[in-house]
Design a protein around this nucleic acid. Structure first.
Lengths: 229, 229
DNA sequence: CAGGCACAAATTGTATACAATATAAATTGG
DNA sequence: CCAATTTATATTGTATACAATTTGTGCCTG
């Protein structure tokens, strides 16, 4: 439906949004190259505006741009993977607490809608979409906390988390069915900040522990080094 | 010395760096406009590369780009000002703790050099430069903690802090002479993570309390609203 | 003389053309 | 036949030209 088949005249923001979605849903996998010509053909704009979009995504950490070589979907290293979840551990629990203390009924309804759509996506065997919706859930909490600055950072962290999951998820077809989000919404409905904070902390640790982040240390960061006997 | 008087051929990174420095040191004040032609003349490159630099700075939060109107040095609202320091309060204490636990003698030497240069700048009546160096001190701690992701965020936060200080500092010519940085270095030298964490927390609160962030609420966020009697 | 309309100037947005660079292919020497 | 070097192709980087938009000015009208 919302795939990358727009045919003519799209702004940089639209391109960024669609490409970002594709990366989030793992339709574009880490390492994939995004040629400027190709993208500009698909969206029917000049390379000028495509480059804007690609650079924007590079700032978010979704792409890496190598000079004279092009833009590639980022492949976070193990270190980056750890860092992403350490940063989230610092930002999200407090944010969840703040959010819980100012949640409105409308917010709750919206969050529950998110969860419902996420489950439906899983039922329809669309794990990529489910993952994206799960990320949106976390962002929604920052929005409820009314912390735009943190929300910006979290947006980047959720994006990178998606890449990390694409690369380091342990059992790809495992049931990531969890009631963590439900429990969080319950805490928020009760305006129980402390509970929300703890639940978020636990939830992040949960995800973190389901990643395969053992030290194989990027494999061949330096092949020459490895072959030096 | 390192003012904006480069005459020919500079990369986007150089332009970004020099303009960023100028903003940090308050030579470019909030609200100032940066015309693309002007900047490209100064640096001797085309508007294409200037636009790259300006957009990069917009992502960092230093500039706001208004469509068809141009790039302006950002003017953080009171809300943003609060958010910046709330975010710093979440990120920096833990980071200082982690840094303290892995500080090397070289790191200590570097930090002390920073402090020295900062004092010298103050003595030479260059408060802008001193402020920039003070910000670099905080970034250095994130580097020592070996947390690149957090360092990236902190870079943005420190940048925005500079703008916040330009706009909301209470007594402009007051002595912001503080031994907070010295105390932090001492804690780090002793690998006293807990102390470093507490000192950082206090230091941030100190700065925060020296800002004039009372609710005059951006003056005229909605003029229509205000005039609705 | 004030207000509004139209026109002119300035500035940003986009597309395209050309230059620089990296990758792939082909050719030559061993 | 393999390796190394050269050539060719593909792709990105930069500059420039043109289009769209905004802002400023002056004129006209009431």
């Amino acid at each position: 439906m919302s795939s990358i088949t727009k045919t003519k005249s799209a702004s940089a923001e639209v391109i960024t949004a669609q490409l970002t979605e594709a990366v989030h849903e793992h339709r574009l996998k880490p390492g994939a190259k995004l040629r400027e010509d190709e993208v500009s053909d698909v969206f029917g704009v000049s390379r000028t505006v495509v480059r804007q979009a690609l650079r924007a995504m590079a700032f978010e950490g979704l792409l890496t741009i190598e000079k004279n070589r092009g833009a590639f979907v980022a492949k976070p290293t193990l270190k980056e993977a750890h860092e992403v979840f350490q940063a989230r551990a610092l930002l999200e629990p407090s944010t969840a607490k703040a959010a819980a203390e100012r949640t409105t009924p409308d917010d709750i309804a919206l969050l529950e809608k998110h969860i419902k759509e996420e489950h439906e996506a899983l039922d329809r065997d669309q794990p990529g979409l489910a993952l994206k919706l799960s990320g949106d859930f976390h962002l929604e909490i920052a929005r409820i906390a009314d912390q735009q600055t943190i929300e910006q950072f979290l947006k980047q962290l959720v994006s990178r988390s998606s890449l990390v999951i694409a690369l380091y998820w342990k059992r790809r077809n495992a049931l990531c069915e969890s009631n963590a989000h439900h429990a969080l919404v319950d805490a928020m409905r009760n305006h129980d900040g402390a509970a929300a904070e703890d639940l978020m902390k636990g939830h992040l640790l949960d995800i973190y522990s389901q990643l395969d982040l053992r030290e194989y240390d990027e494999g061949y960061t330096s092949l020459k080094e490895a072959l030096r006997k």
